[in-house]
Simulated scan of single mutants.
Amino acid sequence: MAAASDEQFTAVIKLKPIEATPETFQEFGQVIEASIDGEEFGPHDAQLDLSHGIPRFYIMHLEDRALKFSEITHHASVTQCLGSIGSHVWYLGVGKPSIVDPTEIKGTTGADVVQSHCGHFYVPPAVDDIHAFRISGPKFLKLNRGTWHAGPLFTEKTMDFYNLELSNTNVVDHTIHDFVKKNKVVFLLDE
């Protein structure tokens, strides 16, 4: 008898995206919008942490990124900035940062702590803590260190995004949580 695949028993959770604004996105990072040329650095600017390596700023070409996801990732050593070239509408699934210091864990919550293959410790993202955001217009997102994210997602066939991270982020600082394998769910953006 053939074994049943994980996908046969997967529940679909619909998420209604909300517009990313400085207020709605503050738990996960920052929404950076246009400012007047010559304005001095302040809290409205991206508060970056690129101190653990060589910064990498590049254009990412993506194709066929439907409005659904079952995997989510985080980076423990860097803030990451993403924005669409041309200010096209795009979407991002997110969960709050959950990196922990194992020496500060008390009680039974330590049972939920996982060590990433990258070396740091974290609590896996909870299904109920996943949110979806719509990003439109001339702005970009700065993700806090450890913010779980899935995307960029979009309805166009292809889109280009600028991405600011570290030169080796996707090699040495890329932790993935698979919701199908771990939680038997997949997320669908209900736009």
Rank of each mutant, 00 (worst) to 15 (best):
V100N: 01
T109A: 10
G107E: 03
I72D: 06
T109W: 05
M60P: 01
Q115D: 02
A76D: 08
V78L: 12
E63L: 06
G119E: 05
H74C: 13
Y91H: 12
L62H: 03
E104A: 15
V89A: 03
L67I: 05
G83C: 10
G86R: 09
L82F: 05
A76S: 12
H120A: 03
H75L: 11
P102Y: 07
S116Q: 12
H61C: 09
S98F: 01
V100Y: 00
F121C: 13
C118V: 09
C81H: 05
S98K: 02
E104K: 15
A76C: 12
E63A: 10
G119M: 03
R65I: 03
M60G: 01
L92V: 15
H117M: 13
H75F: 11
F57L: 04
E104T: 15
K106S: 08
D112S: 13
T109V: 15
H120C: 10
H61W: 12
F121A: 03
T73K: 11
T109R: 09
S70W: 05
C118N: 12
D101F: 10
Y58K: 02
P124T: 08
H61V: 06
L82P: 00
E71S: 12
Y91T: 03
V113T: 09
A126L: 11
K96M: 13
G107K: 00
E63I: 01
P102R: 10
P102I: 07
V123F: 11
A66K: 06
